[in-house]
Design a protein around this nucleic acid. Structure first.
Lengths: 125, 125
DNA sequence: CTCCTGTTTAGATGAACTTCAAATCAGCGC
DNA sequence: GCGCTGATTTGAAGTTCATCTAAACAGGAG
């Protein structure tokens, strides 16, 4: 708590246009960001993320997800854990079932890093 | 101007909000997209991509890139190959040096998938 | 042509990842 | 309590990946 709360390395959000194309990521930033992309760099996890995001109410229980794959429950559970540890999703147990939902902030952050626009509505076309 | 005409006007992709959050990716789409994310899911490759994107003229030669890492030239070459095979960058040899540049289309596509190009203004602090 | 620098390929090794089966944990109903 | 269903953890097998060294390839200079 030396300075303000610079908790997460947030990539100079306001300043430039395309974060990734504006100034080179340093090793620290890359080490922090790469695992997020790696987490969605798997077909199963990408589909899981999509299934959760699309599910009504914005959340889905594991049983719904498992039935969409030809994989065993432990495998799905493993992938969900990876996504959760990356901060892409969150979960909560309600009675018998465990529900997962998307963390929009994290997703948005990744999109912003890759994509030029979106930094502000005033960005030139 | 029958109703048929209207029905033809399909706004499947324009109407929705966030590709990933709109309707679930099927296995084929996920199998196609995941490798792209996996390609940038490595700290070295993410930095490489950023270094290339930021370099003046939009392109960088391998010698510039190699010097930014504590890795051997073959390792850098390997990572560049991965990025190129994913369609994220392209390259050309000019005399002694080989130059790499970003393929903006691919990058934009990934950003669009993650980023809810949602109508509402984004976070404006 | 021969050497030298820059880049890529080939092969090898150790770490990480995906997946499963078996076991364990967490609620719910009898 | 006991058993049942849903979900996660554990341990292990097979595969993929990142990285290196050594060698090959490409182009320019002497």
């Amino acid at each position: 708590m030396s300075k303000q709360d610079l908790s997460v390395v947030d990539v100079s959000e306001a300043a430039c246009c395309a974060p990734l194309a504006c100034e080179p990521l340093n090793a620290t930033e890359a080490d922090e960001l790469a695992p997020l992309f790696k987490a969605i760099g798997d077909p199963v996890r990408l589909r899981l993320l999509s299934l959760i995001a699309c599910h009504e109410g914005g959340e889905a229980c594991v049983c719904d997800l498992t039935s969409a794959f030809d994989l065993t429950a432990p495998t799905i559970s493993h992938h969900l854990k990876v996504l959760k540890q990356a901060g892409l999703i969150d979960s909560e147990r309600r009675g018998t079932w465990v529900y997962y939902w998307i963390n929009p902030q994290t997703l948005q952050r990744l999109s912003a890093i890759l994509g030029p626009r979106q930094a502000a509505g005033l960005v030139r076309a």
